[in-house]
Design a protein around this nucleic acid. Structure first.
Length: 103
DNA sequence: AAATGGGCTACCT
DNA sequence: AAGGTAGCCCATT
């Protein structure tokens, strides 16, 4: 858990992701005014407290790049599926449909 | 202090 | 269309 403003922004942004939708690291970075810091967002979320729905954040291809960081290997996928998102082999289906653009 | 590597991306083969 | 390279910014060695 980090306390700097950027991390806080990342956290609050994640909390704003609607149920059943996802977004990407890059978009979050961008919406925070740091388009080059997608990786930072990744790192930050890696460290994120449990109350943040980090499972709703994927890479720009709709791949569950972060699933290895969850308790169980497929926890991330399961959570997403339980929200109505279909996932096949780490890849979100209808990515464009469930993608949420931060604003 | 410098190099390496990551929950990334955008370009360039 | 798929794979390699180069910037990105921080954390860890």
């Amino acid at each position: 858990m980090k306390g700097d403003p950027f991390s806080q922004d990342v956290y609050s942004m994640c909390k704003r992701i609607p149920y059943g939708r996802v977004t990407t690291y890059g978009l979050i970075a961008q919406s925070l005014g740091k388009p080059q810091s997608a990786r930072l967002v990744g790192w930050t979320l890696n460290q994120c407290p449990v109350n943040i729905p980090a499972h709703r954040v994927v890479n720009r291809l709709g791949l569950l790049s972060g699933k290895d960081y969850f308790e169980a290997p497929d926890l991330m996928a399961q959570m997403l599926q339980s929200e109505g998102i279909s996932i096949i082999k780490n890849k979100i289906q209808n990515f464009e449909k469930v993608l949420w653009i931060p604003k």
